[in-house]
């Protein structure tokens, strides 16, 4: 009896899902729709990227939905399968992994759905229709140059890395060191990870300051960590002696640069990347096929000198 009841409820559960899937397909084929797949919504920068992409697609007349991969390539794979089944006509894509995500994009391509990558590159020329990418490496090079100049080529400094398994962490770190390591007077006394996290950066910085109270600067792999490191400096009263450098162009840091609290950041342009991707998708659906394979979007150096030209995540 009990078993029967369970089977019945299971059946009742599955029958509607079958219908819902079917009805979804119909609906999608009636109105054009574009999917946005983003690596994570746990970071305001990516929230902004995804929301801007979705808003642009909507303003061009498409139905949109944002899929959050939660930094998990397997979950991203599930999203792609759902998107293909649901009949979306294009994907605006921010990948979780440069290599791991390739198979997902190929799957979409095989199903005839164009994929436009935003911000994060995937290591395949053929799979995506076009890639609109943030040039993290050269952005970090620009910060490295400014950093060297501000420190007059000598002094002790600290580097806070992002998540150590993340491509961007190393692109930024390598770009920065490609400049700074040429000057023997600049000595990195500590290199620690703070997982792109503000709170972790504060705690790590507090401990580093115990070991190395004599540092002159901190380079952080993103702006969240820059804000956290700055907070640690405030609590020991060294905020005006130690210079903090970030990367992203997030709201809090742009405000802080304006108030001369944080020295500089690398401004990325999520709005430009998201809107270009959405426009490309629109043009693809309307028939255009000749897209450039890669469009690098430069990362610009923002300091107290040119801060008046910038707002959070973009130019004024």
């Amino acid at each position: 009896m009990n078993k029967r009841l369970r089977n019945l409820t299971l059946l009742l559960f599955f029958i509607p899902t079958f219908f819902i899937k079917c009805s979804n397909k119909k609906k999608a084929s009636k109105k054009h729709s574009i999917a946005v797949v983003v690596s994570t919504l746990n970071n305001p920068w990516f929230v902004f990227l995804a929301e801007t992409a979705a808003a642009k697609a909507k303003s061009l007349g498409y139905e949109t939905k944002i899929y959050d991969s939660q930094n998990n390539t397997a979950l991203e794979s599930d999203h792609f399968e759902n998107i293909i089944v649901s009949g979306y006509e294009a994907i605006l894509f921010n990948s979780t992994d440069a290599n791991g995500s390739i198979s997902n994009v190929l799957k979409a391509k095989a199903a005839g759905i164009p994929v436009f990558c935003m911000d994060r590159e995937i290591n395949s020329i053929e799979a995506p229709t076009s890639q609109i990418l943030s040039d993290s490496y050269s952005g970090a090079v620009a910060i490295g140059k400014y950093f060297t100049q501000q420190l007059h080529k000598k002094g002790n400094y600290v580097e806070l890395l992002g998540i150590v398994g993340d491509n961007n962490t190393w692109a930024r770190s390598k770009g920065f060191h490609s400049v700074v390591d040429n000057y023997p007077g600049l000595k990195m006394v500590a290199q620690q990870s703070a997982d792109f996290d503000r709170n972790k950066a504060m705690e790590v910085m507090e401990s580093i300051l115990q070991a190395h109270p004599d540092i002159e600067a901190v380079f952080c792999g993103n702006d969240g960590m820059a804000s956290g490191a700055y907070q640690a400096l405030v609590s020991v009263g060294k905020a005006d002696k130690i210079k903090v450098y970030g990367f992203d162009g997030a709201e809090d840091v742009i405000t802080s640069i304006g108030e001369n609290k944080i020295a500089a950041t690398g401004m990325q342009f999520p709005k430009v990347m998201a809107e270009t991707a959405a426009e490309f998708a629109d043009e693809y659906i309307k028939g255009r096929r000749d897209f450039p394979k890669k469009i690098p979007v430069a990362v610009e150096l923002v300091t107290s000198k040119n801060i008046s030209d910038y707002i959070a995540y973009g130019k004024k």
């Binding site: 746990n42 970071n43 305001p44 996290d197 503000r198 709170n199 504060m202 969240g224 804000s227 956290g228 907070q231 809090d252």
Partner: peptide, 13 residues
């Protein structure tokens, strides 16, 4: 306490 220390509430705190 976390929010106050950071002077900021983080969605991923």
């Amino acid at each position: 306490i976390v929010t106050s220390r950071l002077d900021s509430a983080q969605p991923n705190a």
